[in-house]
C-alpha cells in the first residue's frame, strides 16, 4: 500500500483546566489515504473534534498541548510547523468546514469577498481575478445565480446555502484533504441530503480525501470508505465501512449500532448502552468502556487494551473481541 496522505501517530492532547489536566485524546492512531473518505464517529467527549482541530493546528497554545505523537501530512510532521508555515497549509493543502455555518462566516464581508480571500492569499491573484474565481466556486457548489449571491452577506442566505458557501470556500484552492466537522448536523434532513451529495460529487471531481467527523451513523454509512470509532478519548475500533456495519467487533460499536433508532426498525423497546459517558476528569481504570460493557471481565477493569490489528484493515481495542465474535455466531 502507498504511504497515506495523512497519518496521525500516537497523538496525545492535554488541556489545562480548573479541575486539573485533562487528556482529551490519548495515543490516537489513524490515517487517511489519497481519495479516501474516513469517518470518525463518537459521542460527546470522545475527542473526535479536538483530533481534527489539532491536525489543522487550531488548538489554542495556552489551553491545549500536544504532549506526544506526530501528525504526518505527506510525510511532514505538522506538529513541528510554525504558525507561519501552518497558515500556508491551511486552506491550501488542508481545508476545514465546521458545524455552524452561521458562526464560521464573517458577517461584515460579502461571501464573494470571503471566498476570494483564499485565492488572493494562496494564489496571489488580484481582486478582480479572485472574484471571478469565487463566483465560479459558488457555481460549483450549486448556488443559483452566483453572480448576485457573491455580493450578498451571510445573513441573506439560508443555513443550507451558508454551508455550501463554506464548502466553496474550503475547496477554493483544491485542497488535498478536506476536514469536515459535523458539517450537516445543524441542517434539516432534506438539506443534509443536498450537502452530502455535493461533497461526494466534488470529491470525485477533485480527487481529494475527506476526513469526516460525525455522531450520525447514517451519515457515516452514506459517506465513509473507512470508519474510526472513538470513545472517551481513544480509538476503540477501525474498519472498512461495510465490515463495521455488518460485523462490528467492539462492544461499544455493537451497542451504538443497536441503540440507534432507524426508520427501518420498529421494535417495541430500544436496545441501550447502560450508564453514562465517563467524566473526562475521572476516566475509568482499565478499559474505558468497562463500566458500560456487558462483556466486561476482571481483566477489563484493570488492564487497558491497546488498539491491535486483528485482521487485514481491522483494528480493535478489546480484550474479549474473540469470544464476542463466537457469541455472535452462537446467537445467529
Amino acid at each position: 500500500m502507498k504511504s497515506p496522505l495523512l497519518e496521525v501517530k500516537d497523538l496525545t492532547l492535554q488541556f489545562q483546566t480548573d479541575k486539573g489536566i485533562i487528556k482529551a485524546v490519548e495515543r490516537v492512531n489513524f490515517s487517511v489515504h489519497k481519495a479516501e473518505t474516513v469517518c470518525i464517529v463518537g459521542e460527546s467527549g470522545s475527542g473526535k473534534s479536538v483530533s481534527s482541530l489539532s491536525i489543522m493546528g487550531l488548538i489554542p497554545k495556552q489551553d491545549g498541548k500536544i504532549t506526544e505523537g506526530e501528525i504526518l501530512f505527506e510525510g511532514e510532521d505538522l506538529v513541528k510547523k510554525s504558525n507561519r508555515e501552518m497558515r500556508k497549509i491551511r486552506g491550501y493543502d488542508i481545508s476545514m468546514i465546521f458545524q455552524e455555518p452561521m458562526t464560521s462566516l464573517n458577517p461584515v464581508y460579502t461571501i464573494g469577498n470571503q471566498i476570494a480571500e483564499s485565492f488572493r492569499y494562496h494564489m496571489q491573484m488580484n481582486r478582480k481575478e479572485a472574484m471571478k474565481h469565487a463566483i465560479e466556486s459558488l457555481r460549483k457548489v450549486g448556488i443559483p445565480s452566483p453572480e448576485e449571491r457573491a455580493y450578498q452577506y451571510p445573513h441573506q442566505l439560508s443555513g443550507g446555502m451558508r454551508q455550501r458557501v463554506m464548502i466553496a470556500m474550503a475547496l477554493a484552492c483544491k485542497p488535498k484533504l478536506l476536514i469536515a466537522d459535523e458539517p450537516t448536523t445543524a441542517l434539516d434532513v432534506t438539506i443534509q441530503a443536498q450537502v452530502l451529495e455535493i461533497m461526494k460529487d466534488l470529491k470525485q471531481v477533485l480527487g481529494m480525501s475527506i476526513l469526516l467527523i460525525t455522531h450520525d451513523l447514517g451519515v457515516v454509512a452514506e459517506m465513509a470508505d473507512r470508519v474510526v470509532v472513538m470513545y472517551a478519548g481513544i480509538v476503540v475500533e477501525e474498519a472498512g465501512a461495510e465490515e463495521l456495519f455488518h460485523k462490528p467487533y467492539h462492544p461499544y460499536t455493537i451497542g451504538l449500532l443497536e441503540a440507534m433508532p432507524s426508520i427501518r426498525r420498529n421494535g417495541k423497546r430500544m436496545k441501550t448502552i447502560e450508564g453514562t459517558l465517563p467524566d473526562p476528569t475521572k476516566k475509568p481504570t482499565g478499559c474505558r468502556f468497562h463500566p458500560r460493557c456487558p462483556f466486561a471481565t476482571d481483566r477489563c477493569r484493570v488492564e487497558e487494551p491497546v488498539l491491535e490489528e486483528v485482521s487485514s484493515g481491522r483494528k480493535v481495542a478489546c480484550w474479549n473481541y474473540n469470544p464476542l465474535e463466537r457469541k455472535k455466531v452462537v446467537l445467529a
Binding site: 434532513v189 432534506t190 443534509q192 441530503a193 443536498q194 452530502l196 451529495e197 450520525d216 451513523l217 447514517g218 451519515v219 457515516v220 454509512a221 452514506e222 465513509a224 465501512a241 461495510e242 456495519f245 455488518h246 449500532l257 440507534m260 432507524s262 426508520i263 427501518r264
Partner: peptide, 18 residues
C-alpha cells in the same frame, strides 16, 4: 433523505433529493 445506517443498502436505494 434520511441516511440508513447500512452502507450497502444506502448505496442501493433510490433517493429523492429535493
Amino acid at each position: 433523505a434520511i441516511p440508513i445506517p447500512d452502507p450497502v443498502e444506502q448505496k442501493r436505494r433510490e433517493r429523492i433529493i429535493l
